[in-house]
Amino acid sequence: MPSSRPSKETAGLILPGVLFRRALGSDYFVLGLCVIYALAVGPFTPGFFTPENAANLLSTALPLLLVALGQMIVLITGGIDLSVTSIIGLCSVTGAMVMNPESGGLGGDMLTVPAGCIAMLLVGMLVGTANGFAVARCRMPPFIVTLATMMGVGGFAVWLTQSKAINQLPPAFNALGGHTGIALAITALAAGCVQVMLNRSVFGRWLYATGHNPRTAHISGVPVGGVLIAAYACSGMLAALASVFYTGQAETGSPVLGQRILLDVIGAVVIGGTSLSGGRGKVLWTIFGVLFLKLIDNTLNLLSLSIFTLTIVKGAVILLAAVLDAWRIRVAGHPA
């Protein structure tokens, strides 16, 4: 009677295949890519393996991670939020106007920084909620809605300041973005909240269900409209929190702050493995996606490559990640 167990030769072929599939399907696939990339490029990159560079890498990755987490939430529902960059700009000038001693009127009061931060978060949440309302209640395509918001909100921020940057912000506020330890603690808290929301709450399950199939989710009793509005509101609020860091780092409120990071945000989330078609995404994947993108950015900068090379390489890497993602879903049946 023939044995159902594979022979030694067959096992020798199957085992690497299984390991390969497991590696492709693993949550830590992109982290593995980060390690391989760092080990391959690091020795040839002057200053790469230094604590200063690691701190620099971290301080620039944290605000990007916050925006990317918001984008991930929206992508899980099957939508997209192109307006995050404009939300960053509008929140930046709103906070700066509140905290600037000339325009804010709080004049060094101890409530200045909390008032500025709350105003920024409220504005972010408000714009996000408006996006969500247009998508959920008016049934408009997320791409069009958030594209229109990007243009409208961006223009409004420029009009509000007449294109001028606003400085003289309180040092305590600047420290929120400028001090890596504080920024790390806040980002970790925000990422932890998103993690709990996605994995341990009913709302998290509703998000995935809405992304997989909104019609089925609706029939199953998921309040799809409310879930969508909340998802865009979360994205807006996380973009506002990132704006707090970006504004603090620049020590200036600017209507064009963060205007160029949309490619990085979407790129990082997609590299991490979050699906553009919805229903799939994890906090850990997004952390690794941001890390990978910032590693590329950081090494290419340290190598002093020209802006043209840098942009081409980054575009190619994002494309490669999207291709790889499609391939690993096919080969490894990547878990949702």
Binding site: T60, A250, T252, S254, Q259, N301
Partner: peptide, 10 residues
């Protein structure tokens, strides 16, 4: 490319 925070990083 017009990004202040990126310039600080650079």
């Amino acid at each position: 490319d017009g990004d202040t925070n990126r310039q600080l990083e650079q």
